[in-house]
Amino acid sequence: MSATEVTGEAELAEAIRGAEGPLSVQGGNTRGMAGCGAALSVAGLSGIRLYEPGALTLVAQAGTPLSEIEDALAAEGQRLAFEPMDHRALLGGSGTPTIGGVFAANISGPRRLSVGAARDFLLGVRFVDGRGRIVKNGGRVMKNVTGYDLVKLIAGSCGSLGVLTEVALKVMPVPETSATLCLAGLDDHKAVKAMAQAMRSPFEVTGAAHDPARRLTLLRLEGFAPSVRYRLDRLRALLAPVGADMRVLEAEESEAAWQEQRDVTAFAKAPGDVWRVHCRPTEAVEIANRAAAEAHLFDWAGGLVWLRMAPGTDLRARLGNYEGHATWVRAAAETRAACAREQPASPGVTRLRAGLRAQFDPRGILNRDRAGQP
């Protein structure tokens, strides 16, 4: 069934107020966030409202294509520092990623471990809640707010508290250059130790990942060219005792390698379910061992583990207790039937979520099966 598309905030509010059942809210529909019910598209809410390069701020409607925003920023030598993942290859989609979808799902890439998550760059929001009320919170500068910090609540809620219509965000300058130090031949234990050592160093590493299949560990440095070169030399000397073969990927090759890591390209055409596990980096290797996955990848210096599992595997039962949570990103029908997408929350968090849901969507009509996400 084709989606009903709205082109204005007032029209969206009216559509939600008049809804007689659950709504499946969609933007570019590339990230698997839509819930059950009648499809409601906000892709028509598109356009950059305000861009002030000197103030490092941008305001855009939620349905604005991510590519349009990235092109506008690139023209001014700026970027989205949290490098949001493009899910299309992994999920087999062909839609258009939108800035609203990025913040609704709090999509953050490899640079998250050094600059923070997408929600940390969100300054203000406008959204329509489940009652059809238009809500505004925050602004174009960082500031404290009274009551709910809706900017933080709405980011990552996957449309279950309200439908984003506009976002104000902070952007960052593109560094002069980047380079990646590649360590070849390390097993998982040695790779995680090397990444931890690099992150503890004063050399400002902005990406730390490991591909066990290729036994390749990536450490990214960014900034002014002389600084990057100096830090590369120092980092190489620091990690010399690990015994890895080392080489450097320069700017373009480095960027391509991190885009593949960001989008989990290695799993895109391979069969099976794909899960992401957030955990303590010190537990990453044990998590991978317990999972007995067909393949795995480490990002965020081990704080994020990507796992490719046989269809229908209950990964959470296999992992048991640990400090973290597992979410399936791509799953076969038998997995979807047996496992909720999100990790079941503790009783306290469940009560908190229910309270928020009652406040913002008492009818429970917005992306109903994503209600546990905030």
Rank of each mutant, 00 (worst) to 15 (best):
Q197N: 03
R200H: 11
R200S: 14
R200P: 06
S201P: 04
S201F: 02
E204I: 13
E204H: 13
V205T: 13
T206A: 09
A209N: 14
A209K: 02
A209L: 11
D211V: 08
P212E: 07
P212V: 10
A213C: 10
A213W: 09
R214G: 08
L216D: 06
L218N: 02
L218K: 09
L219R: 01
L219G: 02
L221R: 02
G223F: 06
A225K: 14
A225Q: 15
P226E: 02
P226R: 01
P226T: 02
S227Q: 11
S227R: 13
V228D: 04
L232I: 10
L232P: 03
D233R: 11
L235Q: 04
L239N: 01
V242Q: 00
V242D: 01
G243P: 05
A244R: 00
A244K: 01
D245P: 00
V248L: 08
L249N: 09
L249K: 07
E250V: 04
E252R: 13
S254P: 08
A256R: 15
A257Q: 11
A257V: 05
W258D: 05
E260W: 04
V264F: 12
V264Y: 09
T265M: 12
A266I: 11
A266H: 09
A266S: 13
F267N: 03
P271E: 08
G272L: 05
D273T: 03
D273K: 04
R276K: 15
V277N: 01
C279M: 05
C279D: 03
P281T: 06
E283S: 12
A284L: 01
E286K: 12
E286D: 15
I287H: 04
N289W: 11
N289P: 00
A291Q: 04
A291P: 00
A291T: 01
A292Y: 04
W300C: 04
A301N: 12
W306S: 11
W306G: 10
A310W: 10
A310L: 13
P311N: 10
P311S: 07
G312D: 05
T313H: 05
T313F: 05
D314S: 13
D314E: 14
A317D: 11
L319N: 06
L319T: 02
L319Q: 06
G320F: 07
Y322E: 07
Y322V: 08
